[in-house]
Design a protein around this nucleic acid. Structure first.
Lengths: 281, 281
DNA sequence: AGCTGTGAAGCACTTCACAGCG
DNA sequence: CGCTGTGAAGTGCTTCACAGCT
């Protein structure tokens, strides 16, 4: 999930399961909230509820960090906050740069959650010369030319890419060449990085598409076919459809002479592609 | 992963593995790019490379949809685009509302990827009366009072929450009551929803924290201890540390009389909490 | 008596490797 | 002969259920 390609082949990275790491920030947030309300201890049950997971999972997760609870009582909130922060590496502060100060980049720069957990926005970088010097979230935007110098001078190892898709790989390459080893990518592209560099991707439209899938399925349940096992029904239907499908396809192949770019729509309207040409059912 | 709590207990939702569904949008994007370059067919190997996965996984994923390839040749790009779009429910268009038009909400409204794949921004909603009527991304912002009416009139079933954390649950409840059954949540809170409602969460600071964890680990590898199995070493260390840890903790418990809110920092600086109070090592 | 910590069982996804079709 | 489609093996995560502290 992390590295764009050739992700470390299960080498030395044992220790804490990736799935657990992904939940630690969740626990941390819940614990911080409890801490602010001066709650001294929590049971796995309570904390799990606050974090939106089940308690067995939470206890298992914590067991990878060590035995930080007290049997018969629960977990000391303050202490656990510290332990998780330390495990996540949030007791040091990480300078990050944000590249691409469009709508999204600005939103990120203004996002309180960054500053609040060991992250410090070291610089905002944009390719547009007109942006240079403008303050966003109280920080003056710098031009891309300065990228390498900024990385080096500030010892930045984490970069956030919020550029259009077309610029992302190039920015990524420059970040990596300058010494960045972790990248959070908001551009809708697959980034290729050398071994040892981590990439995490956040993709707004993908999340929506996944929701649409489930939404569609819900609608289908209420409407058409009644209660039969949609399990096998689905598989069978798919298999049965192959023949028919192949026929349709051949017909379509003859009818549609392979789209060329001449629809005149491939301008520059956004980071994403256009509406896919859809074939007739 | 989806529902905030009590996620459907493996009822009727068999058919396509969730992991596969999550990758379909990725394939779709890669295919769309190929389609725009008028590439007629791809092999699983090529497409997998473009999508950043391995080819066996891709073929397995496609096998859940049916047999849409041609042995010895590969997949017909246009045809596959259509099939995946259909499977994801993108051949119909989904009206969505975005609630909370701050920096992030505006960024989302302007995001090209929404409109480009079957999603249509039906309305932008904000609680600030001063925002009402202002155009963002060409759409006039409406006040929260109108929420229920907007949902109903437009037949909206997908909602995006980009409000501060404090308002999220309340907004969520109203959306659900009005008929929304899928929610994309950008606020850093765990949302509780009734059964049958899907929630997906995108959390910027969590992604960064996960990166920080790996980053820290990289640094640790180069520096301190040499090549020994950090696998067992870690477990042993953790276990050994328990005694010591417990002592420290008791000492700390006596020293620090449980934090109250009096650090004067819990103002209203962002949607997230503040820096967690950290105990001495 | 209560709640944590954890082996063991169960489940889901990934990867392998090859039969089978075009 | 090449590439898909897929059983079977492998891996990692989740859930169960209870032993063991406090």
């Amino acid at each position: 999930m992390a590295t764009g390609r050739t992700h470390r082949p299960a080498t030395r990275s044992r220790g804490i399961p990736e799935a657990t790491v992904a939940r630690l920030p969740l626990y941390l947030r819940a614990l911080t909230a409890l801490s602010e309300r001066s709650v001294p201890t929590v049971s796995s049950e309570e904390l799990a509820a606050a974090a939106g997971v089940n308690s067995a999972k939470l206890r298992k997760d914590f067991s990878y960090l060590g035995s930080y609870g007290t049997r018969g009582v629960g977990y000391d909130v303050e202490y656990l906050v510290y332990q998780i922060s330390r495990e996540l590496g949030l007791t040091q502060d990480w300078p990050v740069v944000i590249v691409g100060i469009g709508n999204l980049g600005a939103a990120l720069a203004n996002y309180g959650g960054f500053a609040s957990r060991g992250f410090r926005v070291a610089a905002l970088i944009d390719a547009d010369p007109a942006m240079a010097g403008k303050p966003v979230a109280g920080i003056a935007v710098q031009h891309t030319d300065e990228l390498e110098k900024i990385i080096t001078d500030n010892g930045v190892s984490i970069g956030v890419i919020a550029t259009p898709a077309g610029a992302a790989q190039q920015v990524c390459d420059r970040l990596v060449a300058a010494g960045v080893t972790s990248i959070l990518n908001f551009a809708p592209t697959v980034l290729t990085v050398p071994d040892g560099v981590d990439v995490r991707k956040v993709d707004l439209s993908i999340e929506l598409q996944i929701l649409a899938f489930h939404e569609q399925r819900k609608a289908g349940e209420d409407a058409g076919h009644d209660d039969e096992d949609s399990d096998d029904a689905r598989a069978v239907a798919a298999r049965e459809a192959r023949r028919a499908v192949r026929e349709v396809r051949e017909a379509a192949a003859k009818a549609a002479p392979a789209a060329d770019g001449s629809t005149g729509a491939s301008d520059r309207k956004g980071p994403d592609g256009d509406v896919p040409a859809v074939m007739p059912a």
